[in-house]
Lab assay of single mutants.
Amino acid sequence: MQGVVKVNSALNMRSGPGSNYGVIGTLRNNDKVEIIKEVDGWYEIRFNGKVGYASKSYITIVN
């Protein structure tokens, strides 16, 4: 499943599904990501070869 990031500035990509996990990357508005699965309001995603987590509130699913 594919998604597009929708933010005003930047979205942190984290090592786990929560804001208490470390930041491993930064996503920008309109970045395209691969959604692997949903975990407690977060998406596990793949972006630029990295796998991490981002809040699903800021990612819109596209077909």
Rank of each mutant, 00 (worst) to 15 (best):
G52R: 01
V5A: 05
G41E: 11
Q2A: 12
Y43E: 00
E34H: 06
I59Q: 00
D40F: 07
N29W: 08
I45W: 00
I36P: 01
G41K: 08
G22Y: 09
S9F: 13
M13H: 03
K50E: 13
W42M: 03
L27E: 00
G3K: 03
R14P: 01
I24D: 03
M1H: 14
V23C: 05
F47K: 06
V5W: 00
F47D: 03
K50M: 14
S9V: 10
V4T: 10
I45S: 01
I24L: 10
G25K: 06
I59A: 02
A54Q: 03
D31W: 04
G52I: 01
M13T: 04
G16W: 02
Y58C: 05
I24R: 03
G41T: 09
L11V: 13
G52V: 03
N63L: 09
E44I: 05
T26A: 08
G25R: 05
E38P: 04
V7D: 06
G41A: 12
V62Y: 09
N63T: 15
T60E: 14
A10F: 13
G52M: 03
R14I: 06
N48T: 10
K6V: 14
E38R: 04
S9Q: 15
E38V: 07
K37E: 10
A10S: 13
Q2S: 13
A10D: 15
Y21D: 03
G22I: 12
S19A: 14
V39S: 07
K56S: 11
L27T: 03
Y58G: 13
N29A: 08
E34T: 04
V33S: 00
I61A: 09
V33A: 03
M1S: 13
Y43L: 12
V62N: 09
P17N: 02
N63Q: 13
N30E: 13
A54D: 00
I36Q: 09
Y53C: 02
T60C: 05
V7I: 11
V7C: 05
I36L: 11
N12R: 08
Q2N: 12
K56A: 11
I61K: 08
N48C: 05
V51S: 09
F47S: 08
Q2D: 12
R28Y: 15
T60S: 14
G41M: 10
Y43N: 01
I24E: 06
D40I: 06
E38H: 05
D40G: 09
T26Y: 10
N30F: 09
G18W: 01
G3F: 02
V4H: 07
N48V: 09
M1R: 06
K37I: 08
D40R: 06
W42S: 02
I45G: 00
N20R: 10
D31I: 04
G22P: 13
S55T: 11
N20V: 06
N29D: 14
N63F: 03
E34N: 04
R28D: 13
S15I: 12
Y21F: 15
E44K: 07
G3M: 03
S9L: 12
I45E: 00
V39H: 08
V5D: 01
G49A: 08
K56D: 06
M1L: 11
I24F: 02
K50G: 08
N63V: 14
S15W: 06
V33I: 09
W42R: 01
F47Y: 12
N29G: 09
A54F: 04
D40C: 05
G41H: 07
V7E: 05
E38A: 07
K32T: 15
E34G: 04
G49L: 07
I36T: 07
A54W: 00
I35H: 01
T60K: 08
N63E: 15
N8W: 06
I61L: 12
V51A: 13
I61C: 04
Y21C: 04
G25D: 12
T26N: 09
S15D: 14
Y58K: 07
L27P: 02
D31C: 04
S9K: 10
R28E: 14
G49I: 05
V4A: 07
I61T: 08
V39N: 07
S9P: 09
G52L: 02
N63A: 12
I45T: 03
V62K: 07
N12P: 14
A10E: 14
N29C: 04
A10T: 10
K37V: 09
T60L: 15
N30Q: 13
M13L: 10
M1Y: 12
K6W: 03
K56Q: 10
W42I: 01
I59M: 04
S15F: 06
N48D: 12
G3E: 02
